[in-house]
Amino acid sequence: MKSEEQIANFVIQELLDGRTVESDENLLRDGFVDSLGMIRLVAYIEESWGIEVPPDHFTIENFRSIDTITRYLDRALGERGPSS
């Protein structure tokens, strides 16, 4: 599964109880993902891709939408280099 799809699945199933969301939609607006949900999302990303999201990367710019999260993840994986 592509990372974007996997993130979207987690957000929709676990954080939005099945409600759909566009990949460029703002997840942070009222009634969508709350602060605890964002913490769960980070934990999920860290666990699934074996990376660590430092606190200063946990920002609006990186976590606003499924698109920005995917781009952030791709960058983080790129910096880590190809997995052995």
């Binding site: 942070l28 607006r29 009222d30 993902v33 709350d34 602060s35 964002m38 946990f58 609006i60």
Partner: peptide, 28 residues
């Protein structure tokens, strides 16, 4: 704005950038 309250690093940056001197919020 609501979205800043959900992402602590962005919230902290805003407190610094806006020069906030008195913060009133919940322990969480």
């Amino acid at each position: 704005p609501e979205e800043y309250t959900k992402l602590p690093a962005s919230y902290c940056k805003l407190i610094a950038d806006h020069g906030i001197t008195v913060l009133y919020t919940v322990p969480f």
